[in-house]
Design a protein around this nucleic acid. Structure first.
Length: 622
RNA sequence: GCCUCGGUAGCUCAGUCUGGUAGAGCAACGGCCUUGUAAGCCGUAGGUCGCGGGAUCAAGGCCCGCCCGAGGCUCCA
């Protein structure tokens, strides 16, 4: 930072015209200030808040010598040839202003980004004219991080916690009897006191590796995951299911860019209201960030969209592959918390609070259904509802109706003030084997962003109005759904049951094990018959013992295993080893196909993405 | 991000304390076995001991820095 510091009798300046698009708003009016120290200031590349503070510190010492306590911060680019970006410079200039005010200095500031004309009269004493250069200190620069205002605000956030019962009674968490709500207690403790018992690795991590679903990729950044064919299949099916449900609900699927310009005015402002850390990207002279949700793209799109109350609620949906959040390294674990993840994100633009509330209920039910279809029942997760005190007091019945629909007590977090851009949100939380909670589905009522992005609709009277925006992820991150399914399977195993994935997600649904290669040709025909019914079937044609092949099929969590030998070919009845019951049941081929078709009815299907014959199959892990 | 622990064959791990020739099981590959519902037998091959630097005659082991993972702290819109 370079400052030309002039002790003046007076300065008179007048903004003439905006020089850059990022310029501040200002009146084209002459300003005259007397007996003042004028600071012509150029913010240079690499300057940060620390520099602003240091500058004010130095100036303040100097002001005392001069016995003056008035300054004018006058943005003046011509002092440096390596200027900071305007958006950065304006922040630092503003920071200087507030630091100075805090120090009790009477502070004025000329608008940033304007051509200004000025007249100045400088005192003649030896200290009247000074030039100073302030550089960022090395250590501070390294530690300095782009943390949004929301992240900082959150640190100061004060919450009050309750349990809301389906009958509408709200009990402070400490007074609630958790006897029959063990998971809710774990979730509440996790949210509030952050106590956790676990000493073990998250069980889904060895599982995701051993089942050849996914693995860490050390060649990338932490939290960027590698998906093997079976994992890709599972993830892809989940993506298809969620998308199908959203289209059925009436959402319009779109696709938007993964990276955005840091300088864009709406975006920069929004970044500061969203508590997430970003990946930054430099491309030529542009600074970009990777999206952490679909909000940006959808809002920019809807900003340019013509719509009226007749089209509302207007529902826009995108499956973001990926969304990026640079979570703190200590937080990134397995598939629970990633830095790059696939998130379905659906916004509904609503005319007023009444419509928003109706839509909110529709989506609440929709999300319960989406999780159920995925394989997560109501018993598998806990609900949190979070709101401002004002909202609750004006909408008690509405809030209660959510708990009523869910049918079990829910955790409530109440804020005295609005810290975020929303007034109400809920989230469904999976409690895992380490007693840690992870949010899946969520929805919120946003009261700020329509204005920020200048999104308007036309009402009955033909007037432009700002809609309310609902932000919903119907399933939460897809990776997190896989995490929840694996953790759920592990829980089942702890209870003595055979762990498994839902049938529609099992990579191999039916495995046929021929007694020996004599029966291969016949087995191919059976596999053909099953496969033609959109059932994923494979054949263990390896020359291993039968027992070994059964064991491996069981370890792969295959739902149906059929051994075929002489007897089967003669009898026409297949001994089907069912994982779910743990029993071998004799069935005809038609019965087996019928049973599977019934269980997976209405679910997406994709063929097996690996060789049908196990002898042809590579091993990705272990 | 901080503290603690860990990283040795594709996988799971021993060896590190006390420096002195790189180990096992599983998997892979070759062969035998042609099997009746959760591990058949024999053999072969497989290693920059996470990466970089240092002290030492000598480092997987000791010291320093970094990367990756786990637990805790913090955080989780």
């Amino acid at each position: 930072m370079r400052i030309l510091q002039l002790h003046s009798n007076f300065i008179e300046y007048k903004p003439i015209q905006k020089e850059i698009s990022a310029a501040e708003e200002a009146e084209k009016k002459a300003v005259r200030l007397e007996e003042i120290v004028v600071l012509f200031t150029a913010v240079e590349e690499g300057d940060n808040i620390g520099v602003a503070e240091k500058a004010v510190e130095e100036i303040s010492t100097f002001l005392k010598k001069l016995k003056v306590n008035r300054i004018l911060i006058y943005p003046y680019a011509h002092l440096s040839s390596k200027l900071a970006k305007p958006s950065e410079a304006i922040k630092i200039v503003k920071a200087m202003e507030s630091f100075a005010k805090v120090k009790g200095i009477e502070t004025f500031r000329a608008p940033f980004g304007w051509n200004k004309q000025f007249t100045i009269s400088i005192k003649g004493h030896p200290l009247a004219e000074q030039s100073r250069t302030i550089l960022p200190s090395e250590i501070k620069e390294k530690k300095e991080e782009k943390i949004s205002e929301a992240v900082k605000a959150e640190e100061k956030l004060e919450s009050f916690w309750y349990i809301l019962q389906p009958d509408g009674k709200m009990v402070p968490v400490d007074d609630f009897d958790f006897a029959e709500h063990e998971n809710l207690e774990k979730f509440a403790r996790y949210e509030i006191s952050k106590v956790r018992a676990s000493q073990q690795m998250p069980p889904h991590v060895p599982l995701m590796k051993r089942l050849e679903i996914a693995d860490y990729e050390s060649g990338s950044d932490p939290g960027n995951i590698r998906w093997y064919p079976k994992g890709r299949l599972i993830k892809s099916l989940l993506e298809q299911l969620v998308t199908a449900k959203m289209i059925e609900y009436g959402a319009m699927e779109v696709e938007t860019p993964v990276m955005y310009d840091f300088q864009h005015p709406s975006l920069a402002d929004y970044l500061n209201r969203f508590p997430a850390r970003q990946y930054l990207l430099k491309s030529e002279d542009k600074e970009l960030f990777l999206r952490f949700a679909a909000c940006f793209g959808q809002f920019l799109m809807v900003h340019d969209t013509q719509f009226s109350y007749k089209h509302m609620p207007l529902r826009v949906y995108e499956l973001t592959r990926y969304s990026f959040r640079r979570e703190k390294s200590g937080e990134v674990v397995g598939l629970r918390r990633l830095r790059a993840f696939t998130m379905p994100d659906c916004h509904a633009f609503c005319t007023d609070l009444e419509q928003a509330k109706n839509e909110f209920i529709t989506r609440f039910k929709l999300c319960i259904n989406v999780l159920k279809e995925i394989g997560l029942d109501r018993e598998d997760y806990e609900v949190a509802i979070r709101f401002t005190k004002d909202f609750y007091e004006q909408n008690k019945d509405f809030v209660t109706s959510l708990a009523e629909i869910f049918g079990r007590p829910v955790l409530v977090e109440m804020w005295v003030e609005k810290f975020f851009y929303f007034i109400l949100k809920w989230d469904f939380n999976f409690v895992d084997n380490q007693d840690k909670a992870a949010a899946l589905s969520t929805d919120q009522i946003d009261v700020e962003n329509a204005k920020r992005y200048d999104i308007t609709y036309v009402d009955e009277k033909g007037e432009k109005r700002y809609p309310l925006i609902l932000h919903c992820s119907p399933s939460g991150a897809i990776e997190r759904d896989v995490y929840a399914l694996l953790e759920k399977a592990y829980k089942e195993q702890q209870k003595g049951k055979s762990p498994m994935l839902p049938l529609w997600l099992s990579p191999t649904q039916v495995r046929i094990v021929p007694m020996s290669d004599k029966y291969l040709a016949e087995v191919e025909k059976i596999a053909e018959a099953i496969g033609s019914e959109n059932i994923r079937v494979d054949i263990d044609d390896r020359t291993l013992t039968l027992q070994k092949r059964i064991r491996e099929a069981e370890m792969e969590w295959i739902p149906y295993i059929i051994v075929v030998g002489q007897k089967e070919l003669e009898s026409n009845r297949l001994p089907v080893r069912k994982r779910k019951s743990g029993k071998i049941q004799k069935m005809t081929l038609e019965d087996l196909i019928g049973e599977i078709r019934k269980i997976v009815e209405g679910k997406p299907f994709k063929p097996l993405p690996i060789p049908k014959h196990l002898s042809q199959r590579p091993q990705f892990y272990g």
